[in-house]
């Protein structure tokens, strides 16, 4: 599998997949998609990169250990829920902020979106942790 072609393509493929995953994540609220599926795509991207370039390379690229992303994701999702404490409503209430961009369109910021991004990070972090650990274990043997 570790052919030259694969190794050459892999970084581009990874980048493409990550971009695509973000796209899937962001359209999730209105079209099929969402944090989970996006996270899976991103994790696959990282796994592919790991296979082609080696796990240590990926780890360097990620800066943080992937499991840290998972923790960050849970934290983010929880914070999205906790925001409703400031407006006297129950936990996990969807809060929306529509910012008029002036040209008729508006930018929608919301806690459900924050929450979904949290999901994305958790899936990304946990799955790539597993994949990298398994790949690395192979190297170690």
């Amino acid at each position: 599998m570790n052919t030259i072609i694969f190794r050459t393509i892999a970084p581009y493929l990874t980048a493409l997949m990550v971009v695509f995953s973000i796209f899937v994540l962001l359209r999730g609220h209105n079209e099929p998609g969402g944090g989970f599926i996006g996270g899976l795509i991103a994790a696959s991207a990282i796994a592919i990169y790991g296979i082609s370039a080696g796990v240590s390379e990926v780890r360097r690229a990620l800066v943080f250990h992937p499991i840290t992303f998972a923790g960050f994701g849970v934290l983010m999702a929880a914070i999205a829920g906790l925001m409703s404490a400031f407006v006297d409503v129950p936990f996990l209430m969807g809060l929306w902020l529509f910012i008029d961009l002036g040209d008729g369109s508006e930018l929608a910021l919301s806690t459900p979106m924050l929450f979904d991004i949290g999901v994305y990070f958790v899936v990304l972090g946990a799955i790539s942790t597993i994949a990298l650990a398994l790949e690395e274990d192979e190297d170690g043997k």
Binding site: P66, V74, G118, V122, V123
Partner: peptide, 8 residues
């Protein structure tokens, strides 16, 4: 997602 994180 806690399950996923914990599985990790």
């Amino acid at each position: 997602i806690s399950v996923v994180m914990t599985a990790g």
